[in-house]
Nucleic acid binder design. Sequence first.
DNA 1: ATAGAATGGTTTATAAAATAAACCTATTTA
DNA 2: TAAATAGGTTTATTTTATAAACCATTCTAT
Lengths: 95, 95
Amino acid sequence: MSEFKPLDPLLHSQLRLAVMSLLLSVEEAEFTFIKEKTESTAGNLSVQLDKLEKAGYLAIEKSFRGKRPLTTCKITQKGVKAFEAYVENLKNYIS
Amino acid sequence: MSEFKPLDPLLHSQLRLAVMSLLLSVEEAEFTFIKEKTESTAGNLSVQLDKLEKAGYLAIEKSFRGKRPLTTCKITQKGVKAFEAYVENLKNYIS
DNA sequence: ATAGAATGGTTTATAAAATAAACCTATTTA
DNA sequence: TAAATAGGTTTATTTTATAAACCATTCTAT
């Protein structure tokens, strides 16, 4: 029952946590939508999405809508699991 | 109802959050006790306690127990308020 | 047709944080 | 009296987060 288990540093980040939270509720979202909802800059978001993808928490698909690039993100099962574990750990800190 | 309000960066840190959490439950604790409970190094803890004190979230008292230095910490009202606000905001990310 | 603004991002640079390593002073113990 | 321990602080290093600059393409207005 060790009180304070380490918090997954990939999730313990305001923007990445917001992204994951958002994707949990919608299951799929476009770059610009995430950007608006999280009120982040494109640069910051781009970097953080990359990290989440490299961790296997997100699947990112690049395609085109008409002639413009389109980046679509969805959470993976691994991402869901990691998020749940993070929340469980976090509860020991905030309750 | 903007979903993701900024999370107080002073609290959104694993070690500082653990310290605050601990102090909320005990109301007063010694440096070494906090160090053990949070499993942190003395150097890291010293730095983080400093930040929390400078923010006005903790009151830190330096004295002696017998001949040895003794650092005692307690949370302030400002600290309690900040913690509560942090938790409220955080809930929007994790629920 | 072409200059300028907008879209949808990525890459690079900078600032801030977290952490560890080294250090310091005094005190006990062998 | 030398070495280990206590109780920390200070400094250096590594990671992160964030912003700024940039890039390619596509619209829009002239």
